[in-house]
């Protein structure tokens, strides 16, 4: 047992009042970082409890998506003629960021309702919950990245210094996903049917993102495509992973960054505004 701590009359007084915005919110989030770590670790641990199955699950979806897109966009739509690298590798380099984004978005959107039992029993800054779900998306991503690396070397494309910027691109994908995820998870607490919207959004997004093609190949729609925040992210990933194939398009990256930041700031605002009522309606 620890030594008896002396009661300190100078301890700060916490004041709870209706509508009082938490002055130390961000300090509290920082104070609960270990909880964030534990929740993330719990999710990863449960998902990879049976290691082999966990890895297989993480790989099945991207492999199948890559296979189908290679067939449809490569063979049927003849996109492969316009790409110098093996088309399946090209597709996988787009599936990789998409997978990260879609896992992060769907996990974070479902997170509050999925942890309702915690929210109604314990206080902590609720932001910890959607944040902690990003871990599983990252671990799944790492598994697929290893597969990509093996394939890439197999096809004779070796990583160069562009790879060093991969973390920045990952952050950008997470920024967009978390921004949208915060909106969706807070809205799902109030409106339970939002949970049906997420898979729909992701399905539409899968086809409106340049995964099986390059935005330049759809010149008439390029401007429209750039409005999808994932366009810049996928482009950025390709620049890192396939340096000879794709030039860096700063405009698209900037659009993604601005949209990501906008989503995140808006999402944080809405999340904070509704957070105090979560326990009453969840």
């Amino acid at each position: 047992m620890s030594a008896p701590a002396e009661f300190n009359a100078d301890l700060p007084t916490l004041v709870i009042e209706s509508g009082r915005s938490e002055a130390h919110y961000w300090r509290d989030v920082w104070r609960y970082r270990e909880l964030l770590g534990f929740l993330a670790w719990r999710d990863v641990k449960v998902r990879y409890k049976q290691t082999v199955l966990g890895v297989i699950w993480a790989l099945v979806q991207p492999i199948v998506t890559t296979g189908i897109f290679t067939l449809i966009f490569g063979k049927v739509a003849r996109m492969e003629e316009q790409v110098a690298v093996p088309f399946s590798l090209f597709v996988l380099s787009g599936v990789l960021p998409w997978q990260l984004f879609s896992a992060a978005l769907s996990n974070s959107s479902a997170s509050l309702v999925g942890n309702a039992h915690l929210i109604s029993k314990i206080y902590f800054p609720r932001l910890v919950i959607p944040l902690s779900t990003l871990a599983v998306a990252l671990v799944d991503f790492a598994v697929v990245l290893v597969l990509y690396l093996i394939l890439s070397v197999w096809f004779g494309i070796y990583p160069n210094w562009h790879w060093l910027l991969l973390p920045a691109m990952m952050l950008l994908a997470l920024l967009v996903a978390l921004g949208a995820g915060l909106w969706l998870t807070a809205l799902t607490v109030k409106f339970r049917d939002f949970r049906y919207i997420v898979p729909f959004l992701l399905q539409v997004g899968l086809f409106l993102s340049p995964i099986g093609f390059r935005p330049e190949f759809a010149p008439n729609r390029a401007a429209l495509l750039a409005l999808n925040p994932m366009t810049g992210v996928i482009d950025g990933f390709r620049w890192c992973l396939l340096p000879a194939e794709v030039p860096l398009d700063a405009t698209r990256l900037l659009i993604s960054l601005v949209m990501g930041l906008g989503l995140l700031l808006g999402g944080l605002w809405y999340f904070r505004r509704t957070e105090r009522g979560f326990a009453d309606v969840i």
Binding site: L14, S18, I122
Partner: peptide, 11 residues
């Protein structure tokens, strides 16, 4: 866990 509708609590 939930906030009061009115009043004040000091802890």
């Amino acid at each position: 866990i939930t906030e009061p509708t009115s009043g004040r609590i000091g802890i």
